[in-house]
């Protein structure tokens, strides 16, 4: 299997590590939330454990650890293994962002 790193070009899959679905976003909760811990726990429970298992195109996190060490977001068809677009995570390199998150 080959993955086209946007920085390095097409590479053998062994250079990469797969993390999972790129859709879930890490919830942001204040440390001393007046609402108590439940809303945060519920949100984090979903974030940590619940995943859609799509038979089709998914956006996934891949880490080019055996190469330029960039985190990538790749569109992959889980049925045919075909890759669509592969882009760098927003914080790869020295990109300066106005605020956290995508």
């Amino acid at each position: 299997m080959r993955i086209a790193c946007p920085f390095c070009g097409e590479r053998e899959s062994g250079e990469f590590t797969y993390l999972g679905d790129a859709s879930p976003k890490r919830p942001n909760f204040a440390v001393d939330s007046v609402a108590g811990p439940e809303p945060a726990e519920d949100a984090f429970y979903d974030y940590v454990y619940l995943r859609d298992n799509v038979a089709g195109v998914m956006r996934e996190y891949w880490y080019h650890g055996g190469g330029c060490r960039s985190w990538l977001i790749a569109e992959r068809n889980t049925v045919t293994h075909e890759f669509g677009s592969v882009t760098a995570a927003p914080g790869a390199g020295a990109t300066k962002l106005a605020q956290a998150g995508e």
């Binding site: 993390l19 890490r26 996190y61 880490y63 650890g65 060490r69 985190w71 995570a89 962002l97």
Partner: peptide, 14 residues
């Protein structure tokens, strides 16, 4: 190392 890079590039790119 992989986790730290994830935090840097994905979670807190600011």
């Amino acid at each position: 190392m992989q986790h730290l890079e994830f935090c840097r590039q994905v979670l807190w790119p600011d």
